[in-house]
């Protein structure tokens, strides 16, 4: 059975153009209900911390001190955190609903000083404030491999967004 060029065109246009366009409309309609993680990238200022000087010195001077700033880069649910000033501390993690979990290897942080060998890995668990673009977060910083180290609580407020998003 052979088709004329006109018939092929109609069938082809239906299969390769009309149907996909219908699929596109359905896709956009369905996707409208999808929820992405809350937006939290940008600059955050650590406003309060229960961190003691003895714990601080292992993170190098001023790194996690009160009023220091942290920069969070977000790619969907994947986060990376770095200190804006002071030594380079980079942690990576994820966001799930309003809870963020980040961790950094002590070796990556470059801990120095006596007693710091107890710290193997730092973990941060925090909860974000309300809204799609939360302005606050509160959580704890804990260290693996250090039984005597109590978790340190901290709070931070958003200082700046990294830029305008594609909201419409």
């Amino acid at each position: 059975m052979s088709f004329t060029k006109g018939t092929r065109f109609i069938v082809g246009y239906f299969l390769f153009v009309a149907l996909p366009v219908l699929g596109l409309v359905a896709c956009l309609k369905y996707g409208h209900a999808l929820k992405a993680p809350v937006s939290m990238d940008g600059l955050w200022g650590v406003r309060s911390s229960s961190m003691q000087p003895v714990q601080l010195h292992c993170l190098a001077e001023g790194a996690a001190a009160p009023k220091s700033s942290i920069s969070i880069s977000q790619s969907g649910k994947y986060l990376s955190l770095s200190m804006v000033s002071g030594p380079e501390i980079a942690a990576t993690g994820t966001i799930n609903e309003r809870t963020i979990t980040l961790s950094a290897d002590a070796s990556a942080i470059g801990l120095e000083g006596p007693g710091c060998e107890a710290y193997r890995r730092f973990n941060i668990t925090a909860t974000l404030g309300p809204g799609d673009r939360p302005q606050s977060l509160a959580g704890v910083l804990s260290a693996d491999g250090c039984a005597s180290c109590a978790p340190v609580s901290f709070a931070a407020v958003r200082l700046a967004h990294s830029g305008s998003g594609g909201r419409d």
């Binding site: 996909p20 699929g23 896709c27 937006s39 998003g165 909201r167 419409d168």
Partner: peptide, 30 residues
């Protein structure tokens, strides 16, 4: 145009909750 466009939009259904955030609408993203 339409086939890669629609496939990309279908892929967006999977990627949007994973690699985007709420400052971006699904329509803009896809």
């Amino acid at each position: 145009i339409t086939l890669p466009f629609v496939l990309a939009c279908l892929l967006s259904l999977y990627l949007y909750p994973r690699l985007s955030d709420r400052s971006v609408s699904f329509i803009s993203f896809s």
